[in-house]
């Protein structure tokens, strides 16, 4: 009989932030070590630091890479990325960024080799990553490049049972409208559908947000709804995707609140992020949508203001873990049947 549980790699994120403490807390949450086989990837002293900060045990059962195909339970795959004395709590350091990237690289290697089914990472610090040679706009693009993946991928924001994808992301507001093209919207719809399938939703309902106020009010405040969004939604419906819209963006999230939709395709960064962060600032999860490997992380950052104080809330990390386990299980099943 094959092993049914997914196996996931967990890395601590930036050791200067709250990541090690959060992973220590996560591992001590009820049901977590039963839900998946877990491989901790990181420096011994960083895991010990997390245990100390959280005042909770983090057992380090050392394992070699060659043992991974039969690994079960909770294991630790050692890696040396920085000396213990280089850890500076609550500071942006090159060493912290290097640790983040080397652990991430290793976890991605394991996933590429099929040794793990998904990757969970603690928060990274963007400035530290950049100083350590990220050489990409963000960690999502970094991961795609590292994996040699050239297909469409995009950050997905998740709150409880709601996902949001974005047609545009980190660009000035004045440049948004010209990037709302049928192709771009279609890709964001398909990404939402694929990610929801991977998370175990059989027939998800995807709502497309309008670009303009009142969805343009029949073309009075912008024509993108009529010229682009309505035809794209109609075409997707003909392909049997359960998609509706364009909906006025000031009320589309109420549908999500009522559980009527599983994902909202947003047109720009703040359209989705305002609502998601308003509804659950401490529970948000980020998924690296479109990558060949399931990857998830809590949406919040390294929180230097509270690092090392044992007050960090594990809620988002726990949500990220459970979502990742669902995605990893489907990923494993898909690979097994392929």
């Amino acid at each position: 009989m094959t092993h049914q549980k997914p196996r996931i790699a967990i890395i601590p994120g930036d050791p200067s932030g709250i990541g090690p403490e959060l992973i220590a807390k996560l591992l001590n949450e009820p049901g977590v070590t039963e839900a998946a086989d877990i491989v901790l990837v990181g420096d011994q002293h960083v895991w010990n630091q997390g245990a100390r900060q959280a005042d909770l045990p983090v057992p380090l059962n050392e394992i070699a890479e060659t043992d991974l195909p039969t690994q079960s339970g909770l294991s630790w795959l050692p890696i040396d990325t920085l000396p213990a004395e280089d850890v500076r709590i609550a500071q942006v350091t090159v060493a912290g960024g290097t640790c983040s990237l080397r652990c991430l690289d290793k976890a991605l290697d394991l996933a590429s080799a099929g040794l793990v089914d998904g990757v969970l990472f603690g928060p990274f610090n963007k400035a530290a990553l950049t100083a350590a040679g990220l050489n990409a706009e963000d960690e999502h693009r970094y991961m795609a490049r590292y994996l040699g993946f050239t297909g469409y991928h995009s950050e997905i924001n998740v709150l409880d049972d709601l996902m949001t994808t974005r047609v545009t992301s980190h660009i000035g507001l004045k440049d948004v409208a010209e990037r709302i093209t049928p192709d771009a919207v279609n890709k964001a719809i398909k990404l939402a559908a694929a990610t929801l399938h991977r998370a175990g939703k059989e027939r998800p309902h995807i709502a497309v947000a309008a670009l303009n106020p009142h969805a343009g009010d029949n073309g009075k405040f912008g024509r993108e709804e009529i010229d682009i969004l309505e035809p794209v939604v109609k075409a997707a419906q003909e392909k049997q995707i359960h998609v509706t819209g364009p909906w006025p963006s000031d009320t589309v999230f109420l549908k999500a609140k009522r559980g009527e939709v599983d994902a909202v395709v947003t047109m720009y960064h703040d359209q989705g992020q305002i609502a998601i962060k308003l509804m659950g600032f401490e529970r948000g999860v980020t998924v690296a949508g479109g990558l060949p490997i399931p990857v998830a992380t809590p949406a919040h950052g390294t929180a230097f203001d509270i690092a090392g104080q044992n007050v960090a809330n594990v809620g988002a990390t726990l949500q990220a873990f459970h979502l990742l386990v669902r995605m990893a299980a489907n990923h494993r099943a898909t690979r097994a049947s392929a």
Binding site: S249, D250, L254, L278
Partner: peptide, 15 residues
């Protein structure tokens, strides 16, 4: 700065 930036939060909070 714009309509939905203001209306998304208030309607999501207090429809």
């Amino acid at each position: 700065m714009y309509h939905d930036q203001a209306l998304i939060p208030i309607k999501t909070l207090a429809f």
